[in-house]
Simulated assay, not measured.
Amino acid sequence: MSATYRIQDEPRPGALGHLVVNPVFPLLSLLLAGTWLGVPWFILNGFAMGSPTRRKETVLAVLVIPGTLLLFQLLVLLLMEGVLTESSMPYAGVSAIVWKLALGYALCNLQQRSFALHEYYGGVVRNGALVLVASVFLGPRILEALTGGSTVLRVMLG
């Protein structure tokens, strides 16, 4: 009979452990490229790192898109009811950006703890700068291909 010792918050990298990046890169991709890249990258990074909070991270990441859609529908409803005007819509639209960035920041903070342990104990860490720079330049074309010109999809994934 052998007892196994396990630290509860210890990251346990899986087969994708060689793809781990600093959580700042998915956050920057969310800021600069959009939800279409930032959200999947956060999820992939959490699973690659073996983060003990990866389920919580996945739930937060998945909430970004439906939350943005609900916020968009609320703004359209307020516009139709006359609470908002056409000239105030761009200012109200900032709330969708704030929603995405707040969840991105929360995801970055959740992953940062596991990443620090992963890095400290010699885990492989990749540089995400190349993906980030490529997404900034190729992102508008990729977003156009993903949305097909739909305004609602552009708001959700942009």
Score class of each variant (00 low, 15 high):
residue 116 A to Y: 07
residue 88 S to E: 10
residue 101 L to W: 14
residue 4 T to N: 13
residue 120 Y to V: 01
residue 29 S to H: 03
residue 83 V to A: 09
residue 42 F to C: 05
residue 56 K to Y: 04
residue 69 L to D: 04
residue 90 P to T: 09
residue 45 N to M: 10
residue 157 L to M: 11
residue 111 Q to I: 02
residue 77 L to Q: 04
residue 58 T to R: 08
residue 29 S to V: 10
residue 134 A to H: 02
residue 60 L to M: 09
residue 124 V to S: 01
residue 150 S to I: 11
residue 67 G to R: 03
residue 108 C to R: 06
residue 19 L to W: 14
residue 68 T to R: 09
residue 61 A to C: 09
residue 152 V to A: 13
residue 144 E to R: 05
residue 106 A to Q: 08
residue 24 V to E: 07
residue 136 V to F: 12
residue 26 P to H: 08
residue 38 G to A: 13
residue 112 Q to R: 13
residue 77 L to D: 02
residue 62 V to C: 13
residue 140 P to M: 00
residue 130 L to A: 02
residue 115 F to R: 00
residue 155 V to W: 02
residue 88 S to D: 05
residue 77 L to K: 13
residue 103 L to P: 03
residue 48 A to F: 05
residue 10 E to N: 03
residue 143 L to K: 03
residue 76 V to R: 08
residue 79 L to N: 14
residue 137 F to P: 00
residue 118 H to L: 13
residue 50 G to R: 00
residue 26 P to C: 11
residue 5 Y to C: 12
residue 45 N to L: 06
residue 7 I to Y: 03
residue 76 V to W: 06
residue 143 L to F: 07
residue 123 G to Q: 05
residue 33 A to T: 09
residue 30 L to I: 08
residue 126 R to S: 12
residue 142 I to L: 10
residue 153 L to R: 03
residue 28 L to A: 11
residue 118 H to F: 14
residue 120 Y to L: 13
residue 51 S to L: 01
residue 32 L to D: 07
residue 152 V to G: 08
residue 27 L to I: 01
residue 151 T to S: 12
residue 2 S to N: 15
residue 110 L to P: 00
residue 12 R to G: 14
residue 31 L to C: 15
residue 1 M to R: 04
residue 28 L to H: 07
residue 108 C to W: 10
residue 155 V to K: 04
residue 78 L to M: 14
residue 61 A to V: 05
residue 82 G to W: 01
residue 117 L to R: 10
residue 67 G to T: 04
residue 72 F to I: 01
residue 100 K to N: 12
residue 26 P to K: 10
residue 4 T to E: 15
residue 81 E to F: 12
residue 156 M to K: 12
residue 105 Y to Q: 13
residue 42 F to D: 04
residue 85 T to N: 07
residue 64 V to L: 12
residue 48 A to T: 02
residue 110 L to K: 01
residue 144 E to Q: 07
residue 157 L to D: 10
residue 74 L to A: 10
residue 31 L to Q: 11
residue 119 E to T: 01
residue 28 L to P: 02
residue 17 G to H: 03
residue 16 L to G: 08
residue 24 V to F: 07
residue 8 Q to M: 08
residue 94 V to G: 15
residue 88 S to Q: 13
residue 65 I to H: 12
residue 15 A to C: 00
residue 67 G to N: 09
residue 53 T to L: 14
residue 69 L to N: 08
residue 77 L to Y: 06
residue 44 L to V: 15
residue 25 F to Q: 02
residue 3 A to Y: 11
residue 60 L to S: 02
residue 137 F to S: 00
residue 76 V to Y: 12
residue 23 P to Y: 03
residue 95 S to K: 15
residue 42 F to A: 01
residue 87 S to I: 11
residue 85 T to S: 15
residue 119 E to W: 06
residue 60 L to A: 06
residue 47 F to G: 06
residue 12 R to M: 14
residue 94 V to S: 15
residue 31 L to V: 14
residue 50 G to Q: 05
residue 36 W to Q: 13
residue 74 L to K: 05
residue 128 G to F: 05
residue 3 A to L: 15
